[in-house]
Each structure stands twice: as structure tokens, then as C-alpha cells.
Simulated scan of single mutants.
Amino acid sequence: MTASIRQQLAFVRPIPRHLVHRASVAEVYLTDAVAEGQDRFLVAAQWPRDHALYYPDGNGCVDPLLFVETIRQALVYLAHQYYEVPLTHRFVGRDMDFEITDPDLLKVGATPLPVVLEVAWAWTGHRPPQRYGMRIEAVLTVGDVPCARGSLRVVAVDEKRYGLLRRRGGLPAGPGRAADRAAQAERLPAHQVGRLRAKDSVLKSAGRPGEWDLELDLGHAILFDHPTDHVPLMVLLEGFRQLGYLQTTEGDAAVPHTLTGASMDCLAFAELDAPIRLVMTQHRLPADAGSPALLRVEAVQSGVLLSTVSMSWAAGSRAPAAAPGLV
């Protein structure tokens, strides 16, 4: 049955951008979805061969954060299209995790990569119509073969309850500011954090052992695809990823590592107009050549713990050096 349902999936064009909360059509990866049974779906997506931020690693494999963004889009799309969650509701991320189980299937080839998510839907803390609590478990398949898994839990609330949640955090919900040139100059060089373009680096040294500052540019066309009143989950995850790369790849002679898994909890809203510190709380080196490096990082703002993440990084082959002057 699954095989025949898969044949119904189309990869011709992206779904409407508003159904995945994106302003740019270029940032929409989903192309179709079909129901496979009660609260089970097949979701089709097409991944680009290259991307300004989510580009292939030195081994030619798809950026794992592209997988995470596809999970996010799948949850939002299914919520609106199949479960009638209002488009006016605000979505707030609670937790996320993923694991790459077969990276060889995620090699970028001569054409964009068609993938299918096998999605299981569940309600959590569900009190409609004001509050919709939802979670999806997704298995990523390429050519019908599983190669990764992930999950995402979100709550969607109406404007009244969203306002209550925002005030409960105790921090001002200001509009924030775009990073000025002086702040951009303080960021770590892009090649040190595993990025190609200087404007994609979001880290700067905090001047304290084990701590870094998250330096955001609200004008970044991908990280901030549309205006928002807080720092999105995917932006925090990008900061965590860059810090992980920095810690696992030391010096130009080192072999770069690849992010193969992460588990992230979101505990409070991250505001746009107050400094955010990333604090390394654990860095466990691999026990042998085949073991991953394990890292744990916390995001803290004004004394409030915003988010925690545990990451797994595997050593890969040496990648070509990136030009640090790209902008």
C-alpha cells in the first residue's frame, strides 16, 4: 500500500509558501503530501544541489539542518492542510531532535534530491481551538530507503494566548535591531565556524572561557526570512551548529567534523534586543577513531536559560578550505 501511495506524490513545484510560514518561494522545500492512514502521512520534498546557507559538506552530503527545516515545514503544512489549525495561530517550538543514520544516501548528485518523509502525527497538550499541541516523528527516505529520523514538538496558540506567553517570559518583546557593521566585524571568520560567507557567521568571542555571544543580523535573508518578534528555533540551532563546528575542528590542519545528530529543548523565548550567550557545558572527545564527539551547549539571556542542545559530531574527510573573505 505504501508503495502505491508513494507513486501519488508529486515533485513538480513547491507548495504555497504561506502554508509553511515562509516569505520566499526559494526557501520552500515541500512539494506534496498524502495521507497514508490515521495520523500518518507521506511528505515529499526536493532539496537543492546547493544553497547559500545549507550547502553540502566536504564529503558532498546534504546539510543536516536542511533535514531539520524540512521537518519544520512538514509539521506546519500538515497542521494547516489536514488538521485545520488556523493560519492566524502562532507556532512556538518546544523540542526537536534528529539523527542521520545513513549519510551515504544523502550525497548530492547531478540533480536536485527528491526525498520523502514518513510522518506520524500526535497531539500533545491539545486544547483547541485556542491551543493546538502537536508533535511529529519523521523518517527520512531516499529511494524508499530510510537514512535519517527526527521529531519536532510545537504548540500553536491564538493571539491572546501568544501575548500571555510572551509576557510570562519577563523580557521585553521589542522589535530588535539589525547588526551594525561594527558588530559584524567582531564575528568569528566564516571558515572557523564552518560557513562560506562572512555574513553567515553568527558567533563572536565573549572573552570568557567556554562562552560565546550570538550575534544576529535581522536582515539575513534566510535566517530571518520574514519579520519576527523573537529568535526562531532554527536560528538558535544554527548558532549551536557553528559552535559545534568550532569546537570539533581546531586549526586549518584538522579534519572537519559533521553534525550527525542533535537533541534540542526550547525553554523560553529568545528576545531580539538582548545579548544571548552560548555556554559550553560538556565537550566529550571521541574514545576512538570511529566514535563521535559529544557536545552540550546552553543558550542564556539575561540570566534566563533559553535552550539546551546535545550534539553528536563525526569526523569526516578533509574539505577544501573556504575563502574567509566571501561576503
Rank of each mutant, 00 (worst) to 15 (best):
residue 168 R to A: 13
residue 166 R to C: 01
residue 298 E to F: 15
residue 243 L to N: 02
residue 260 T to N: 08
residue 257 H to I: 00
residue 108 V to Q: 02
residue 219 G to D: 14
residue 147 C to H: 08
residue 257 H to M: 04
residue 49 R to D: 00
residue 93 G to T: 13
residue 128 P to Y: 04
residue 222 I to G: 01
residue 318 R to E: 14
residue 24 S to F: 11
residue 154 V to G: 08
residue 291 S to H: 09
residue 264 M to F: 12
residue 324 P to R: 04
residue 272 L to V: 02
residue 162 Y to F: 15
residue 192 Q to T: 14
residue 301 Q to H: 11
residue 255 V to P: 07
residue 284 R to S: 12
residue 325 G to E: 11
residue 260 T to V: 15
residue 151 S to D: 10
residue 10 A to Y: 00
residue 32 D to G: 03
residue 287 A to N: 07
residue 32 D to S: 14
residue 101 T to E: 08
residue 166 R to W: 00
residue 147 C to W: 03
residue 210 G to S: 07
residue 235 V to G: 02
residue 26 A to V: 11
residue 91 F to E: 02
residue 30 L to R: 08
residue 130 Q to I: 14
residue 6 R to G: 14
residue 172 P to W: 06
residue 44 A to L: 09
residue 288 D to L: 00
residue 13 R to L: 03
residue 52 A to R: 13
residue 144 D to A: 06
residue 250 E to F: 05
residue 215 E to A: 15
residue 83 Y to T: 00
residue 107 K to Y: 02
residue 93 G to K: 07
residue 139 V to H: 03
residue 246 L to P: 01
residue 75 L to D: 09
residue 10 A to C: 07
residue 111 T to S: 07
residue 178 A to G: 14
residue 136 I to K: 02
residue 308 T to Y: 09
residue 43 V to R: 04
residue 100 I to H: 04
residue 313 W to C: 10
residue 256 P to S: 13
residue 153 R to P: 04
residue 189 P to C: 05
residue 202 V to H: 08
residue 53 L to Y: 03
